[in-house]
Nucleic acid binder design. Structure first.
Lengths: 223, 223
DNA sequence: GGCCGATGTATCGAGACGATACATCGACGT
DNA sequence: ACGTCGATGTATCGTCTCGATACATCGGCC
């Protein structure tokens, strides 16, 4: 996930690690940020993988193992995406598998880079997310009506609030899907050129149990 | 956090690890669960610390380092809270520091065990959570109005939805606090006996910037 | 008899986190 | 001129968490 986000940001312009973190927090809606303990190791990994480069020619590349902990002289490092990195990003941005929407955090990142995502991919991700959240909602509903009597007020209240949140997310997704379908003026018609190899696309996941009967209100709300 | 939750559950009755996990998921509102990769190490730690005991007398206690990876014969293990564990739980349940409400997950667990929490502690935690979420809300609001022009529709939509969620949480907390103050029939008047040593209570955290002017609507909504 | 899904215990590697250290810079007061 | 304070900036450490996986037992059900 971090890899995707970093590539997405560097896709637009080179940046320092510090600013990367700020932009990320901004884009993610202010709550959920990312810590340096994740960011720098990720940058290091990606650098090793050739997805990004630094201007500084590798600090502490080879120094005697007994050297002091590298104090003093810590220069600023600008990270730049490579051609390989861009390729990797375009590969990732066309993925629509469960990992794109099952985890809320990852879904948020995907959404934040929707302007760089093809229209059909956008739709598949939104609908995937809808399925996931819908399933959560039904589970929660069942659990709530099952245990309404046996739990104390606080636990019940917690579940009720959780259910409402999930409910609201479903409705929000419906609106996004709606405005995606009525095509409220967004470019990027179909998946552009790309078509890079067989990137394991969305296995239909055994078609789900699409029998819940809770499927009428869709695509008919608002706008 | 896991430690608190486990102690809280075992406080009521002994359990298998498996059931511990299920109950935890139940209590946490169905979403956010806990994985075995967290649960079993936690149980092991707590067992070593003497907070809980098992009926099986320590599997793989001392066996030659070359032994096969302990295949076959894996008995069920019932975990029971010890006197020390109960003591520890009562200590934890009276804490009202930032860790009780800054992290949403931890707060959820605390709330789930409110029936075992003294009334004044409940109130402090709810108000702490309110402060935290309120601060998030203001940050989000500021960020949204600052960047309304510069961001694309999707990022904006993400932030708007996030803001609404936070907004609803604040209102939800207000209701909880309200009904806590009007004392809608809950026992546990004051912090009971306990008073176990100097448990680092809530440092007022330099009183916050309580100047936002956004402080009128409290305690006057609904009911 | 054979298979499946629930129950159940447990480990592994990848990686995320909070805390912390250290460094530079501009602004501000004194 | 001096101090110091907050923002910018790079980086690591130990602790924890996660998802995936392996293995085992049990009750039904065809």
């Amino acid at each position: 996930m971090l890899e995707f986000a970093i590539l997405g940001l560097l896709h637009q312009s080179p940046m320092h690690g510090y600013e990367l973190r700020k932009q990320l927090a901004q884009v993610l809606g202010g709550l959920r940020s990312i810590s340096y303990g994740s960011l720098y190791p990720a940058l290091k990994r990606m650098r090793a993988a050739g997805l990004i480069t630094t201007d500084e020619p590798d600090p502490h590349a080879l120094l005697p193992a007994d050297a002091p902990p590298l104090t003093g002289r810590r220069g600023k490092v600008v990270y730049t995406i490579t051609a390989e990195g861009k390729e990797r990003f375009h590969e990732l941005v066309s993925q629509t598998g469960p990992e794109a929407y099952d985890d809320g955090g990852f879904f948020g990142v995907r959404l934040a880079f929707f302007r760089l995502t093809a229209a059909d991919v956008r739709l598949r991700i939104l609908e995937g997310r809808r399925r996931t959240v819908e399933r959560q909602r039904e589970g929660l509903r069942a659990s709530l009506s099952r245990t309404r009597e046996r739990l104390d007020r606080y636990t019940l209240e917690l579940q009720r609030h959780g259910l409402e949140s999930v409910d609201r997310e479903v409705r929000w997704l419906d609106e996004l899907i709606d405005s995606e379908l009525t095509g409220s003026g967004h470019g990027d018609a179909q998946t552009p050129p790309d078509q890079t190899g067989p990137h394991d696309q969305d296995p239909p996941r055994s078609e789900e149990k699409e029998s819940h009967g809770v499927r009428q209100g869709r695509h008919r709300r608002r706008r």
